[in-house]
Design a protein around this nucleic acid. Structure first.
Lengths: 344, 344
DNA sequence: GAAAGATTTGGAAGCGCTTCCAAGTCCAGG
DNA sequence: CCTGGACTTGGAAGCGCTTCCAAATCTTTC
């Protein structure tokens, strides 16, 4: 197992062929006589030779590395299983397509500023998957301006021609709220996500839409803003309680957990006194007591799709921009009281 | 903002200097007259030029990319906040040292086999941080054999001369178990982690040590093997219950959550009927009811230290091997009943 | 059996950067 | 005014690979 740093030249020499031919064999390209191919293969195996990927990248002008950029990751990253699942599915898909995944987590705008050159520097990365949560986002526009292959996860605002992939948050929220009405609830409130995020805004929009369609005046007291954390859910649920909603659509399961705490602390029961529908359908959702009715996001498919879209953009250019909204699914468990309504 | 792909040559030409000089300026190296330095700088700024990192890597034989390899990530990766925190701290530290982080998540041995060339290929990665959980681990030895700079997180078995960083699991477990005895418990059981992991084994070893030192015969019925999941904790706690332990050291907080479920389902109370100490001190620990007494791992410092050690290995070679065990800390909350014992 | 075509081969020019080394410039000291 | 030493500068040789292109070889086909 000699592991001296071998080069293509040396392999070629040992096999008695030119470097060009050796290159052809190793990259499994045509135009090589079977006999020569064999000879080269044998040398490669005997020596344990592997191409130097950096040299290859330089010559091909393609690195087969893609970046995953997650800005402002700070708290959400810990508490919410969303990111681990997303990262895992992206990593897995990269493996599949023989791409290497470079991960960039930014915590502050200062980080973003300082590290921008690292990600945009042409050469290292063939493209970038950008997780955009916050509505205020400068990265996307900057990268687009540099003609950098970018796929945004989330729904970027005010950036023309950017390709993106998002969950259909509006439709998902509609399903949740409609279900609450369908199960006989009248006073349906909502705990929104942070309204600095598009997910927060869109899920609220879905809530509004359903109310409007039912000619149900929306009571401002029934709309409180959370921040996607459990603690936040706990606190704003307490604000909501005095107004006596009989159902609440909560824009994330994590917040729903906090809300559950607040409700039981107030001596009320879910779903008898207050019905709840969450959003996400991550592990905590079915481990909660009672198990949460929620809107399921296809996060893993999401990661896969993101990688595939980016590869497509890398291969075929950014036009036309791709816009994909993925469907969600209502998962009925106990917290919405659906099993109470039609008892037989 | 011209963003045509510029090269160093073009910058040099525009500034009227040689490529060598331009390189010196851009890399902030000495031996350039201030005037020329300025001139080059100006051109760089005007054109928005950035070095091509791939070409640089090839010339320098160093990529400033490090790999983080997490094998067999499947379930643990979702359920346990350990990995997100670790990854985040590693990413952050990489940012700080101007390194790029490449993430490799392997799910199966097949993945490992297939992707091994990708990580070991000399050139792309300057070094690798390898998370080794399972006791059976072939990656470490292979990489060491190739003289690849490696730092292992965890405690590798039977690989000579490998540098590693681990939590002192034995000492941590000892603290936990000792605390349980110190608070007056007699029948102390343990739910171990998967005994295919070194963490599982070491934490059990700590349990044994304390029992032995107290001349306490260890009852096999008091030792049940979990698998680090909540569901697993739930199940094995049910096995434990009939033997009526008055305290349990549980090798992870996640499992402790499951155990808590089992205990309350059996109509018993924590800590009155059964005291519990967990391990990890992640978010779920203090959100549990009752809040978990647990052993705190310094995961973030861990990530930082790992990166720094690897950089040191890259810079100064693998000898002598570095071995670091990080201290843990007992965090006393309610689940151990410490607050009950000395009531005034 | 020769011309036309298809296939195989390798020479050489990059890809964009670093760095060794020799040549050139500048200044102080004698 | 000349010499030696310190600092600047740029030419040129890589780093290890891909790929264009021309030359060489092998098949067909009439």
């Amino acid at each position: 197992m000699a592991d001296e740093k071998l080069t293509l030249d040396e392999i070629a020499e040992k096999a008695g062929v030119s470097r060009t031919t050796a290159s052809r064999v190793i990259n499994n390209r045509p135009h090589v006589r079977p006999e020569l191919r064999q000879r080269v293969m044998r040398v490669v195996e005997a020596t344990g030779y592997r191409l130097n990927p950096v040299a290859r990248s330089l010559a091909m002008q393609r690195s087969e590395i893609m970046g995953l950029v997650i800005p402002r990751s700070t708290h959400a990253f810990f508490e919410d299983p969303y990111f681990p699942i997303l990262i895992q599915s992206i990593a897995k898909t990269c493996n599949y397509y023989d791409y290497t995944l470079a991960l960039f987590l930014f915590e502050s705008e200062a980080d973003e500023e300082q590290l921008y050159p690292r990600i945009s520097r042409q050469g290292l990365l063939d493209g970038i998957i950008l997780q955009v949560g916050e509505i205020k986002d400068s990265l996307t526009a900057r990268l687009m301006q540099e003609d950098f292959p970018v796929l945004v996860i989330g729904r970027p605002k005010d950036v023309p021609d950017v390709s993106y992939l998002d969950v259909d948050n509006v439709a998902g929220a509609r399903k949740a709220v409609a279900h609450l009405f369908a199960t006989g609830h009248q006073r349906v409130a909502t705990i929104t996500g942070a309204l600095t995020t598009t997910a927060g805004i869109d899920r609220l929009a879905g809530y509004h839409q359903v109310l409007q369609e039912r000619d149900c005046p929306s009571d401002p007291a029934f709309i409180v803003e959370g921040n996607f954390t459990r603690e936040g859910g706990y606190q704003v649920m307490q604000q909501l309680l005095p107004h006596q909603p009989d159902a609440v659509f909560i824009a994330s399961d994590t917040m729903a957990l906090g809300a559950l705490d607040a409700i039981s602390e107030a001596g009320l029961h879910v779903p008898e006194d207050i019905a709840i529908v969450g959003f996400d359908d991550l592990v905590p959702a079915f481990q909660a007591t009672p198990p949460l009715t929620t809107i399921k996001q296809p996060i893993s498919q999401f990661g896969r799709k993101a990688v595939e879209l980016l590869l497509d953009i890398i291969a075929r250019g950014p036009y036309p921009p791709r816009h994909i909204l993925m469907d969600t699914e209502l998962v009925v468990r106990e917290s919405c009281g659906a099993h109470l309504a039609p008892p037989g």
